[in-house]
Amino acid sequence: MAVTTQVPGSSSLLERLQRPRVIIALMLVMWLPLMTYVMFGNYLGQQLKDLILLPAIPATFLLWLVAVISWRESWVAVLGVTLVFFWLLVAVSAPYLPLIDPNKPIAPFTVPGLERKGHYFILGADLKGRDMLSRTLWGCQRVLVWGVTATLVAYIIGSMLGLLAGYLAGWWDEVISFISNVLLSFPVMVLYILILNYLGPSGFNIVIAVTFASAPAIMRIVRGLTLDMKSRDYIFAAQTRGEHPLWIMLVELLPNARGPIIVDACLRLGYTTVAITTLTFLGLGLPPPDPDWGLMIKEAAKVAMLWKFSYMLLIPALAVSSLILGFNLMADGLREMSLKD
């Protein structure tokens, strides 16, 4: 962030912020601390753990601003991106918000808006007496980090396979297409259950399961796009120059296929978030006791079947819905805009 504000130039600050290189830098500043915090938080020292998310807060805010300004023509996309960035902002700033410890049992079954044992529960407390508000806000960290990581890994593997199958054709295509046909013939949830049951419930295993479930579909999309672009002039030009096939795939083909890929990625982020929450609810996703929306639903579903305690189920359900609605609206708005051009 400091770099962007000190670069002298004639263009306005906002225009400078919209450059791809700056956006990528901002994304890294936002994402890397968050990922480290959630995945490897226990290995960091307490002091480092307290400070690591600080630079991510302004980066997230700036990214949201840039996204809103560059997509302002579509209110659907703006609404979606705002919902997503609300949760991202909560995720990076959760350690600094004045919240009660989400894992500390205080007063079980406290309904919203009551004060008990010296704490005011805005959204009530769950069956073990932990504060719902802080559990809901903390819960978005794990879903976001694992969901985005899993989608990213699935995308890297899926698009590599798609490029190989589409560009090299022949045996590559036959083998990759058969494997993905086998995987695609499973109902997704069945595949998730089988893989996670074999590997055991953990974040990294979710990444593996999501990769197995989504990479074949991504591969199909990328393969189709590659087949479509393979006969364009600029590919022939690159071939005539004697470029390496790998270079052609990564530098010539992949960037030109980015439009449909980005829209699909937004949708797939939504699917992955749903999958992680659902799997945690089924007892196959992220392990307890850290706060997580799926876990909150799982725990409350056994005891909260009364109107009075329905907030325990409703709050995590609404939270996860709003995040997924954000991803879907973003995808919708982006598609709308890409059709206009």
């Binding site: 659902t278 079947m305 409703l314 359900a317 996860v320 997924i324 609605l325 879907n328």
Partner: peptide
């Protein structure tokens, strides 16, 4: 249509249960 498909099944199940079963008491949970 976008709105209803965005709400995951688990959340739809919860919302419907809370309204129709817990709130109004028309259906078993």
């Amino acid at each position: 249509a976008v709105f209803t498909t965005s709400i995951p099944e688990i959340a739809t199940a919860i919302i419907l249960t809370v309204i129709l079963a817990l709130g109004l008491g028309w259906l078993p949970t």
